[in-house]
């Protein structure tokens, strides 16, 4: 629901993080994000699949058909080496960015 509030590009970063430790299908990624952010980030299907296929076009992830644990056919996405590099860079950038933002916010609180 909060997808529309996200900074542009942030969703892509979160998606990459979601499959950092192993391939997930689209539904799984959405669910993982929702659980991790306690529902704060729960992209609708349109945003989710646009993001996935956009990332695939940028060659940061690649999708392949496979089987889920309960025997359903689904498309699983995994990080490419390029995706892994992008993720690392983006995380660093985000950390710096967030530190800067917090520094300002905390200063105002005092």
């Amino acid at each position: 629901m909060a997808g529309s509030n996200l900074f542009t590009g942030t969703l892509d970063l979160l998606m990459l993080q979601a499959i950092k430790n192993g391939p997930k299908h689209g539904y799984g990624i959405g669910k993982w994000l929702a659980e991790r952010t306690e529902g704060e980030v729960d992209p609708d299907e349109g945003a989710l699949y646009s993001s996935l296929h956009r990332l695939e076009r940028k060659r940061q992830i690649e999708g392949d058909w496979g089987e889920t644990e309960n025997g359903r056919r689904a498309r699983f996405y995994s990080l490419t080496s390029k995706g892994r590099k992008t993720l690392g860079k983006e995380v660093t950038r985000w950390e710096r960015h967030a530190r800067a933002v917090f520094a300002v916010l905390r200063h105002e609180e005092q």
Binding site: D44, E45, G46, A47, L48, Y49, S50, L52, H53, R54, E56, R57, G63
Partner: peptide, 23 residues
Amino acid sequence: RSMERGQGAHATAAPHARTNLRR
């Protein structure tokens, strides 16, 4: 219903999907 709410999922993702398939 939730799929419909995310209406246009197909439409938004389709262009990317096509490019990927072609490649």
